[in-house]
């Protein structure tokens, strides 16, 4: 263990390797593996879609305005998350905890709207086993949605700790959950374009 300044200027006891806090490096390695995981899914989706002759037109089947609204919600949750870390970094711990709570609420809203979208599609007879579109659509959005749901649980745990003053000396825990949350946002940026707009 080394007593070194973090990238945010805080003095705390965190293991460091090559000048990087090791928990942060570990999260980045995890995110690198996640990029490859989602790349595999997206490329499989595109390959199946481009080789299919009866792929449905997204705008006719899916509610683009609804999902665009959901995209704004997820982007909004990213800004509340980064502002939470910024507040914690500046010593405004109560504000950070409330911003984390706001992020969790927006994440829950995103998952709820996605669940509504799924229920509407299923009502129209499109299920995971209906056709290739159904299989790939539910797989991609399902894996992403489960990542959001896990993120919400993680953020709530971090928010609870923040309300108890758990990050008053070191906001690294908020930065780590933030990295994961922003990654989930980046994945959605691509999924929204590829599934709903192209």
């Amino acid at each position: 263990m080394s007593d070194v300044p973090s990238t945010t200027g805080h003095q705390h006891l965190t293991p460091v390797w090559q000048g990087i806090q090791t928990p942060k490096f570990a999260v980045w390695l995890f995110l690198a593996s996640e990029i490859m995981f989602f790349t595999g899914l997206i490329v499989a989706y595109l390959n199946l879609r481009t080789n299919s002759h009866d792929w449905p037109v997204a705008a006719e089947l899916l509610s683009v305005p609804l999902v665009a609204t959901n995209t704004f919600i997820l982007i909004g949750s990213s800004v509340t998350m980064v502002l939470a870390f910024d507040a914690a970094d500046r010593g405004k711990h109560r504000r950070a905890a409330y911003l984390l709570l706001a992020t969790a609420i927006l994440g829950t809203l995103f998952v709820s709207i996605q669940a509504y979208e799924w229920s509407e599609l299923m009502r129209e007879g499109i299920r995971v086993s209906t056709n290739l579109f159904g299989s790939t659509f539910y797989t991609l959005t399902g894996f992403h949605g489960s990542h959001v749901a896990i993120g919400v649980i993680w953020i709530l745990a971090v928010a609870l700790k923040a309300f108890r003053g758990g990050y008053n000396r070191n906001p690294l825990g908020i930065e780590l959950v933030g990295l994961y949350w922003h990654f989930v946002d980046v994945v959605w940026i691509f999924l929204f374009t590829i599934i709903y707009l192209i």
Partner: peptide, 22 residues
């Protein structure tokens, strides 16, 4: 998002390589 919200613009360059290669 990566440069500003994930702080890659300001953080250690090695993190940009880890996230950038994949």
């Amino acid at each position: 998002v990566a440069l500003f919200y994930m702080h890659l613009r300001y953080d250690h360059r090695l993190l940009s390589i880890v996230g950038g290669i994949p």
